[in-house]
């Protein structure tokens, strides 16, 4: 335990041995020598994106997203000996993360439509000059209102480092379906936000 803590919090000096090493070389080290330092570096590199993805999928529930992210890395560590390195390590992790999220959804029946902690249909009051914080909250709520399969596509799309073929691989869907889902999901997202604006009435107020 103490050793793992030392590895995880290792400073620049201690990390020098792994910092400049490519992902696949780290994976090889973690696979062949059960090198925990190499695995810790992989966690350090990828945890931000994985947690971000899960946070959006969980409708902004940060505690749950972190719990699931820990499960993702634990599963990845356990499955590492069977990882054949045909895909990017990051893509493989995204795929595990999506499966972990789906398992959680199936088990708890949560997030089919919306997280319990998310206020449904209560957007921040709109104004002429949209405030960044308000719009951000609205966007997060609108994402949480999407059905799970649309939400996953939108989240992966806006993570930006995931290509369409990789999205198809992560979600286990054909490329064409991904593009269709993405188009529909983005349209739905905007519809939700426009409906809120309309309800709020501010969009028409500024029209003379």
């Amino acid at each position: 335990m103490a050793r793992s803590r030392a590895i995880a919090t290792a400073g620049p000096g201690l990390r020098a041995g792994v910092r400049d090493v490519a992902d696949m070389a780290l994976v090889a080290r973690a696979q062949q020598d059960a090198d925990k330092e190499a695995f810790a570096e992989l966690v350090r590199r990828h945890h931000g994106r994985i947690r971000n993805m899960l946070l959006r999928l969980c409708g902004g529930d940060a505690a749950l997203a972190d719990d699931l992210a820990q499960d993702v890395f634990l599963r990845a560590y356990r499955a590492l000996p069977r990882f054949e390195r045909r895909a990017e390590f990051g893509t493989w992790l995204y795929r595990i993360a999506y499966n972990v999220f789906l398992n959680h959804t199936t088990r708890t029946r949560r997030f089919d439509a919306l997280g319990e902690h998310v206020e449904r249909g209560r957007p921040a009051p709109a104004s002429d000059e949209p405030d960044g914080g308000d719009v951000r909250r609205d966007v997060e709520r609108a994402i949480a209102e999407l059905p799970v399969h649309y939400r996953a596509v939108v989240v992966l799309y806006y993570l930006r480092d995931v290509s369409y073929p990789e999205m198809a691989e992560i979600l286990g869907l054909p490329l064409g379906t991904i593009k269709t889902h993405l188009f529909r999901a983005r349209a739905r997202l905007r519809e939700i936000m426009m409906a809120w604006d309309e309800k709020d009435g501010t969009a028409d107020e500024v029209t003379p």
Binding site: S4, R5, V155, Y158, R160, D161
Partner: peptide
């Protein structure tokens, strides 16, 4: 803009520590 900023990774050193403790 907000959607594109959602991609900003969340960084937290403690997370790596917690994961490695669980791995151990």
């Amino acid at each position: 803009r907000c959607l594109s900023e959602l991609a900003r990774p969340m960084e937290e050193a403690m997370f790596v520590t917690d994961v490695m403790a669980r791995v151990e």
